[in-house]
């Protein structure tokens, strides 16, 4: 674990792997809930957790060294199930990249169990880990990816909460609403949420 100061009010905690970041994130949330940690924002990412809004970062840096971070906690929470029509325009490219046919891409994707490693890019956009294979980003990003697009890039799966530019490989579409600010919670996917995708036929 490496602790990097970020200005005068924040720390970036760097760990080795996504699993360690997940475990550290869970531990930080636990300590905040018990009142042991006073911080405005806890922002997990690929291999780091950012703590923003600290009164005394250097004091916390000292304390962090002595903390036991238990491994990833048991996955007791419910699974969010997302229906997908595997009809994306990049399905053939992903199939070719993996050396399988398009049906197999859908089977591999729907068989995996995912977890929201972190959010970013847009409100409610989760970076989901758990897919056993990777694909590169598209060489040329699209200027508009439709809302509900289920997409792959690197080790991640994501679902576009709203139409936006994007360079991810589009493999399918869902009608589920990822983000609705009038709903509580607004985001369907938050860091730590477990997710499965299941195939549905086109209407």
């Amino acid at each position: 674990m490496r602790v990097l100061p970020v200005g005068d009010r924040a720390l970036l905690i760097e760990v080795g792997t996504g699993e360690e970041a997940e475990a550290l994130h869970a531990e930080l949330l636990r300590r905040r809930a018990t009142g042991d940690l006073a911080v405005a924002e806890i922002v997990p990412a690929a291999g780091t957790v950012l703590l923003d809004g600290l009164d005394d970062p250097s004091l916390l840096t000292g304390r962090l060294a002595s903390w036991e971070v238990p491994p990833v906690p048991p996955r007791a929470q419910d699974v969010v199930e997302i229906p997908v029509r595997y009809d994306g325009p990049d399905l053939a490219d992903v199939a070719a990249h993996w050396g399988v046919d398009e049906t197999e891409v859908a089977r591999i994707h729907a068989a995996a169990e995912f977890r929201v490693a972190f959010c970013g890019f847009a409100p409610g956009f989760g970076y989901l880990t758990g897919l056993p294979r990777e694909v590169p980003r598209r060489a040329t990003p699209r200027t508009a990816v439709p809302a509900g697009s289920v997409a792959l890039a690197g080790p991640y799966t994501g679902v576009y909460p709203r139409s936006s530019p994007g360079g991810w490989q589009l493999i399918g579409t869902t009608d589920i609403v990822l983000w609705d600010h009038t709903r509580v919670p607004a985001a369907l996917l938050a860091p730590g949420t477990r997710v499965r995708f299941f195939p549905v036929a086109a209407p």
Binding site: E41, P44, D52, G120, Y127
Partner: peptide, 10 residues
């Protein structure tokens, strides 16, 4: 660099 959290003023 893998994506990481950003602060105001970064």
């Amino acid at each position: 660099l893998p994506s990481e959290g950003m602060v105001l003023g970064a």
